[in-house]
Structure formats: C-alpha cells, structure tokens
C-alpha cells in the first residue's frame, strides 16, 4: 500500500507543476511526470510476489508469472506519451517564435 501512496505523491507533484507553473516547458514537464506515475501505477497493480517475467523458457514450465496485461497496455502508452510530448513541444516552439516568451500569462494578444 505504501508504494501506491508514493505513486500518488508523484502524481501530485506533476499536477502541481501543471497547475501552478507559468512556464510552458515546466507545464510539459509536469505532464511527463504525471504520465510516468500513471505507467508505474499500472505496472505496480500487476506485480506478483516472486513472479517471473511473462516470457516462456525453453526447457522449463514457469507457473508463477506476473500479470502481462497492464504491461501490454503501458507499452502502447509509453510510445503515445512520446508522440504527445513531441507535439506539445513543437507547438511551444511556435509560440516562442511568435511571442518571444514561454510565459503563459504574456500570451494574451492574438497576433496575425
């Protein structure tokens, strides 16, 4: 249970970064931390004590495997996270070109 709580603390730090910070790159970093904590939480749910990795071996029968379903879901989620980060970063670069700042409170006027 304490591992779940530590995972929630990590999520809260990411949430704090997204809501409180005013720099665009800091907000993107907060989103990344939230994504990490969620991935870790899913994998923690599937762990089994003294379990083996879910890969069959050649000459032995493995009975005690960890849960492969959360791992499969998280595997797609990691790559999607990379795509999202790249997209948000490119939008942030365009905003920097146009306004000359990463500060979100200064990006108010609509310009061309």
């Amino acid at each position: 249970m304490s591992l779940y709580l530590l995972c929630l603390v990590l999520f809260c730090i990411g949430l704090y970064g997204v809501l409180r910070k005013r720099n665009l790159v800091k907000i993107i970093i907060g989103l990344g931390i939230i994504e990490y904590s969620l991935n870790l939480f899913f994998v923690l749910l599937g762990y089994k004590f003294h379990g083996r990795a879910p890969i069959d071996a050649q000459d032995q029968i493995i009975l005690n495997m960890v849960d492969p379903l959360p791992q499969a879901l998280v595997l797609t989620s990691i790559v999607i996270g990379l795509g999202i980060t790249a997209l948000v970063i490119s939008i942030a670069i365009r905003i920097y070109e146009k306004y000359g700042t990463f500060d979100i409170t200064k990006i108010k006027r609509l310009r061309g």
Partner: peptide, 10 residues
C-alpha cells in the same frame, strides 16, 4: 525476447 516493434523502431 523482450523488445518488439516499438522499442526496435525507436
């Protein structure tokens, strides 16, 4: 073995 299309592609 561990790996697959995503990791290898990256």
């Amino acid at each position: 073995s561990p790996g697959g299309g995503f990791a290898g592609g990256v």
